[in-house]
Amino acid sequence: MPAHNNPALKTAEMRKMKGTLSLIFFAILIAFSVWFVEMDIFELIQSIPLFFQFLFTDFFPPNISDLSTYLGPVVDTLIFAVVTTCLSSLLGIVIGFCMAHNTTPHSAVRLFFRGIIAFLRNIPFLVWASILVVIFGVGTMPGLFALVLFGTSFLSRVYAESIEELNKEGIEALDACGASYFQKIKHGIIPQFLPGFYSWTLFMFEINIRASAILGLVGAGGMGSILKQTMDLFQYGKTSTVIAIMVILILMVEYVTNRVRERLI
């Protein structure tokens, strides 16, 4: 068979052409984006030595003279994460069951909650924190509500997706036995869903620890408030101490949650 009539060869040539066109398209897109944002590569390269000079001159060594004063905010951050994770998981599991197509009481309920969660998820939690600071004032309350809104919207979706991916054979068997809605939830859904619930909830706890740094930048409490305060006062030695404490705290939380996840799942 001639080469130009070979279907396999034509398919390979078409794929190669599509791949080449895709690379050209992305190259043009990147070039246009760099031009549009007026990014100066040479200025970026020239700024690297200044960055390292500022980092090693002003940030190091860390100032540990007030180390004891950071204990309270660290405890606040941990309690903050525990409270917001518990509230978010409780709200998320209820909404998640309503959102999943195999556990929702009615399709209208599913669409209603999916619309609310989609709205909440499309607003960054930093924006929520900024709005709530205006309403409640500077403090821990805006951060608490912002993380609950963010956590609930995130967990509701992942819980619902986890529930929809469960094995359907057990539910069909319970249906054949005439089980009620709550009996199917108790005996068919929850036992299969628990591993995913533990995994996502622990992951949310880690996110809440990290989010405290960002929330503090808008005055919403946590370790981030000290981070912002020290930066505003140009006390960069103390800033590096706060950052080091946060890194250590996050690593410890990740280690503990991984150990808990291994035992539970």
Rank of each mutant, 00 (worst) to 15 (best):
K16Q: 11
T84V: 06
N102H: 07
S107K: 12
I41M: 13
L21H: 09
N102T: 06
I45F: 10
R15E: 13
A100T: 02
F25K: 12
E38T: 12
E13Q: 13
F56T: 15
D58T: 02
H106D: 10
S22G: 15
L55H: 03
M39Y: 13
F26Y: 14
I64E: 02
I41W: 13
P73L: 06
S107T: 15
M14L: 07
L67F: 02
V82F: 09
T85Y: 08
I24S: 11
T20N: 09
W35H: 11
F60S: 05
D66K: 00
E13W: 13
I64C: 03
E43A: 15
P61M: 07
V94K: 04
F51W: 07
P73K: 02
V34A: 04
V75Q: 12
H101Y: 12
V34Y: 07
P49H: 13
I30G: 01
A27I: 09
F59Y: 05
A81C: 08
L21R: 09
K16Y: 11
Y70Q: 06
L91Y: 07
S65W: 00
C86D: 01
A100W: 03
A12M: 10
M99H: 05
F60K: 04
F97D: 02
T84M: 03
K16T: 05
F36C: 08
I64F: 15
V37K: 08
D66L: 02
L91P: 01
L78K: 04
F32S: 13
A27S: 15
T84Q: 03
F25L: 15
M17N: 10
S107D: 10
D58P: 03
I24F: 13
P105I: 12
H106M: 03
L91C: 09
L90D: 07
T69E: 06
K18E: 14
L78E: 02
N102S: 09
H101P: 01
L67S: 04
S107R: 12
M17W: 09
E38M: 08
R15L: 06
G92C: 06
L71F: 14
Y70H: 04
S107L: 15
F97Q: 05
D40Q: 08
I64G: 00
F36Q: 11
W35Y: 09
R15G: 07
L44N: 00
F52L: 09
L71I: 11
G92V: 05
E43N: 14
S33D: 08
F26K: 06
N102L: 10
I95N: 01
I95D: 00
S88Q: 10
I30H: 03
E38V: 04
E13I: 15
F97E: 00
M99C: 14
L87V: 09
T84D: 03
F54M: 08
F80G: 01
V83I: 15
I95P: 04
N63K: 03
T103I: 07
I24G: 09
F51S: 13
P73Y: 04
I41T: 15
F97C: 12
K16C: 06
L21Y: 11
A81V: 02
T20Q: 11
